[in-house]
Design a protein around this nucleic acid. Structure first.
Lengths: 141, 141
DNA sequence: AGCCAAATGCAATAGTGTTGCATTACTGCC
DNA sequence: GGCAGTAATGCAACACTATTGCATTTGGCT
């Protein structure tokens, strides 16, 4: 199931309407190579002769983020599609400082250990957001 | 050694000048309870009859961040002083979704494991940025 | 005291994000 | 297939975040 298909299914199931702007934003994010800013998405639309209000784009992105269909990448700015679809747990990113390449992954053991460390500090962790920077396979050596 | 003392020492040692704006920003961040935006710092100054240019504040903050004397808190916006001073490694945050309380910590084992997981994916991690959300001691139960 | 590189102030500009309200358009129902 | 009602969008305005270039100032040195 493609990203867009999965996202549209998720929206339906949760009772959200499947509107034209939402389809368009999903399509834009599906096609994008890396993180897109709402502004980028607007420009892409404009380039195709369509028009989408910036506010609408923000609202769509917020919705998609809240459903974990899209993630914000803090260290680079912008938003990317979630590549792990229905995989539960905390999704993390590896961000290459060489080429900017982004890889999403998930690791249950890491999540568990992180929560344990928090517990020792009296904190009950619910969600972890992690972005690691370094060098990807192609940029090493 | 207080935050400001330590920061001023670090600046000197690395050859950065100890200017009035830098002292003022350090003082503001030292006193602040939680994350401050550059705009907040500007307003705080204005309130005391002093004036600091926004651009200058940004530049000072960027410098302090690059020296790890101050961290940006992505999930809340704004910047906080580093509470771990000279402790090496990746500094992480626990962010309470109840009261907004922020706690900084460090855990070498976690760091190592995170790098190992990345390694298995062919990625050579250098630095990890983590913010966990959940409930602090006071907000549980 | 004076030098000078580093840092600041100012002006302009661009990107990011939010709110309120009137209008439109999905979805479910007949 | 049309209708009703609610959810979502468009528009306008606004506020915050952040960057660049250049003229001017100043901290740290001799």
């Amino acid at each position: 199931m493609s990203f867009t298909e999965y996202a549209e299914k998720s929206l339906r199931e949760k009772g959200y309407k499947l509107t034209k702007p939402r389809r368009q934003v999903l399509e834009a994010i599906e096609k994008a190579e890396g993180p897109m800013s709402p502004y980028d998405i607007g420009k892409m639309m404009e380039g195709k002769g369509r028009h989408l209000d910036q506010v609408t784009i923000y609202r769509v992105i917020n919705l998609l983020c809240s459903l974990n269909l899209v993630h914000k990448v803090f260290s680079r700015g912008g938003y990317v599609r979630c590549d792990l679809q229905e995989e539960e747990g905390c999704h993390r990113f590896l961000v290459c400082r060489g080429c900017g390449h982004l890889q999403e992954y998930r690791d249950e053991a890491l999540c568990r250990q992180e929560s344990q460390v928090a517990q020792k500090l009296g904190f009950q962790a619910e969600h972890h957001v992690t972005e690691s920077s370094g060098l990807c396979k192609d940029c090493q050596g």
